[in-house]
């Protein structure tokens, strides 16, 4: 054929080399890592109590619930969608599992006690159902995920309110209590659960056909449809995955905190989104993954924990967190642009 490349040397056919283009294309993975190293270094110097094994354990435990929720959210954001109902679904699932567990007599909730495994299954069914509603709204009716999950955030909060009616429940099934607040060989179960779920998410995204589809749908939805993929099924699936991960995070979170009540998980919405995005997963879809989310979780964990170790006005911390998130978003968008330039 009369290819325009016919006269170029074979060397031109290899992947582009040189460090600069490579670094540019990897900006999205490198930047969060540098942020993590910088923050860790800073806090290690600023506070002697920061860089200790004990504190590492603290950080891991502190990010576990966020990590469990962020697994599902990573799938959603990789598809270039968003799920704003994660914290509410976590909350309602945690409340539901308590609602189906026998509470102490002083807890004034008209609940329906049942065996532990049934309570867990019902709670899981509830979060899966709410995820399914998100999925149907997004794919069948065609409501943008931002709006659909905003509505679901309210709906799930409403269900929570109806179940606890302003009261606080304390008891959850023993399995949940163990996984949420117990530990084995000095390692908290909740850290193990988070690690297993993150690993599972990574394996699904990297080694399964479904994971490939998630990346392809996120990378170019139209092309995915023209390749004959069932895009709606994939989008629907990630919404359900996200809700179920949130539900698991919610149940373990309730056991971890020792109580189930309204608005308990509110901060987890921003934290989970921040973990995914700070880690470098593209808000435009198709780029990133669980590895990025793990780095993002550590950045947030180190930041939250480290700020407690240094002497800073606690009201200033909120602002600092906001600024760090903004910086991450800037890098996220900028990395996308650099990558596109490198790929041109």
């Amino acid at each position: 054929m009369a290819s325009s490349d016919s006269a170029t040397s074979p060397a031109d056919h290899k992947r582009p080399r040189g460090l600069a283009p490579f670094l540019r294309s990897q900006m999205r993975n490198i930047a969060p890592f540098l942020t993590l190293i910088f923050l860790s270094g800073f806090f290690a110097i600023a506070s002697p109590s920061f860089a200790t094994i004990d504190n590492l354990g603290n950080i891991l435990t502190q990010v576990s619930v966020t990590g469990i929720i962020a697994v599902g959210l990573t799938f959603v954001i990789l598809c270039a969608e968003i799920d704003l109902s994660i914290a509410s679904i976590a909350n309602v699932t945690g409340i539901a599992v308590a609602y189906f567990t026998l509470q102490e007599s002083y807890v004034n909730i008209a609940n329906i006690p049942m065996p532990g495994f049934a309570a867990i299954l019902l709670a899981l069914a509830l979060c899966a159902l709410l995820g399914l509603v998100n999925a149907l709204g997004l794919t069948i009716i065609g409501i943008p995920s931002f709006i659909m999950t905003l509505a679901m955030m309210q709906i799930a909060a409403g269900v929570s309110a109806l179940l606890v009616r302003g009261q606080i429940a304390y008891k959850v099934p023993p399995l949940i209590t163990t996984l949420g607040s117990g530990s084995i060989g000095g390692i908290p179960w909740i850290v193990i659960v988070a690690a297993v779920m993150l690993l599972g998410g990574h394996l699904v995204l990297t080694y399964t056909r479904f994971g490939r589809y998630v990346y392809m749908v996120g990378g170019n939805r139209e092309a995915a449809e023209f390749a004959g993929l069932n895009v709606k099924l994939i989008l629907g699936s990630v919404m359900v995955i996200s809700a179920v991960c949130s539900g698991i995070g919610g149940m373990l979170g309730v056991a971890h905190f020792g109580s189930a009540q309204q608005n308990e998980f509110d901060t987890y919405l921003l934290d989970s989104i921040a973990a995914v995005v700070v880690g470098g997963t593209s808000l435009f879809g198709g780029r990133g993954g669980i590895g990025n989310t793990i780095v993002g979780l550590f950045v947030l964990g180190v930041l939250n924990n480290g700020l407690d170790h240094v002497n800073i006005d606690s009201f200033l911390k909120i602002l600092i967190r906001g600024l760090i998130l903004l910086a991450a978003l800037v890098i996220n968008v900028y990395a996308q642009r650099l990558r596109e330039q490198a790929a041109e």
Partner: peptide, 21 residues
């Protein structure tokens, strides 16, 4: 071309996408 291909993905993923099943 914008509608039919994944520009950020390698060639082989573009070719295999429709036959992964």
């Amino acid at each position: 071309r914008r509608a039919m291909l994944f520009h950020q993905e390698p060639v082989y993923k573009n070719i295999s996408i429709s036959i992964l099943e």
